[in-house]
Simulated assay, not measured.
Amino acid sequence: MKVSGKTIQYNSLEFKGIFERLFPHMCVLGSRILGSDDKGKDVAQEAFVKLWQRDNEDFNSERALQAYLYVLVKNACISQLRKEKKYNSTTLDEGLTVSQQSVLNEILREETYKLLYEAIKELSPQAEEVVNLALKGYTNQNIADELDITVNSVKTVKKRAYSKLRKTLGSQFVTILLTNFIQFF
């Protein structure tokens, strides 16, 4: 697998470091969805095994890898819930009840916010401010007025910032974020 252009072997110290940093997050997500620490750990381990089996994956950053693992854990949890038949006839397409889907969405939103805000903090101070205001629903003109810069400067800063966020988090992650979660900021 590659992370930030660097090849990482699964028996290396780099992979061990990634595992030690990300495994607890995956356990928490799995545990919260399934309501069991043991099941959460099992699902997190399963996600890392799937990652190991797909050794040709290429991630722009560790955050992109983390987003990928969140999706693996979420899907494994849904499969686990289906196996346990813990849903009734009023299920949604994913096989979850309305309340389970609501909890899952809240957990994923929370984890998404963490990833996004960590990435935003790595932007320049001006870009960080522009992106935060944009996520709060400010128009380009409002941002320009607030920061006392031109609208064209706002557009340029946003374009560069979003480009860096796509590179850091992965383009699919940012697209999903901007289309599904922007109303919650």
Rank of each mutant, 00 (worst) to 15 (best):
S4Q: 03
G5E: 06
T7H: 15
I8P: 08
Q9I: 07
S12E: 04
L13D: 13
L13C: 15
E14V: 04
G17W: 10
G17Y: 09
G17D: 10
G17F: 08
E20K: 15
E20M: 14
R21V: 11
P24H: 06
P24M: 08
H25R: 10
V28M: 04
S31K: 07
R32Y: 05
I33M: 13
I33V: 15
L34M: 10
L34D: 04
S36Q: 06
D37K: 07
K39L: 12
K41C: 01
D42H: 09
V43T: 02
A44W: 01
A47Q: 00
F48Q: 09
F48I: 02
K50R: 12
W52I: 05
Q53A: 15
R54P: 07
D55Y: 12
N56M: 09
E57F: 09
D58T: 11
D58H: 13
N60S: 15
N60I: 07
S61C: 03
S61F: 01
E62P: 01
E62V: 10
R63W: 11
A64N: 02
L65D: 03
L65Q: 07
Y68H: 15
Y68W: 14
Y68A: 06
L69Q: 09
L69Y: 12
L69E: 04
Y70I: 06
V71Y: 04
L72R: 03
L72P: 01
N75P: 02
S79N: 08
K83P: 11
E84D: 11
K85S: 12
K85I: 01
K85G: 14
K85Q: 06
K86N: 13
K86T: 09
N88P: 01
S89K: 14
S89V: 12
T90G: 12
T91A: 15
G95M: 05
G95N: 09
G95I: 06
T97L: 03
T97K: 03
V98R: 15
S99C: 07
S99V: 03
E106L: 11
I107V: 08
L108V: 08
E110P: 10
E110C: 15
Y113W: 14
L115A: 05
L115S: 02
E118N: 06
A119H: 03
I120F: 14
L123I: 00
L123D: 00
S124P: 04
E129T: 09
V130C: 00
V130E: 00
L133W: 00
A134R: 03
L135C: 02
K136N: 10
K136P: 01
G137A: 00
Y138T: 03
N140L: 13
I143C: 02
D145Q: 07
D145R: 11
D145T: 06
L147H: 01
D148K: 13
D148G: 06
V151G: 00
V151Y: 01
V154N: 08
V154C: 11
K155D: 08
V157P: 13
K158S: 09
Y162S: 04
K164W: 04
K164L: 07
R166V: 05
G170N: 00
G170F: 01
G170I: 00
I176D: 08
L178S: 09
F184W: 10
F185H: 08
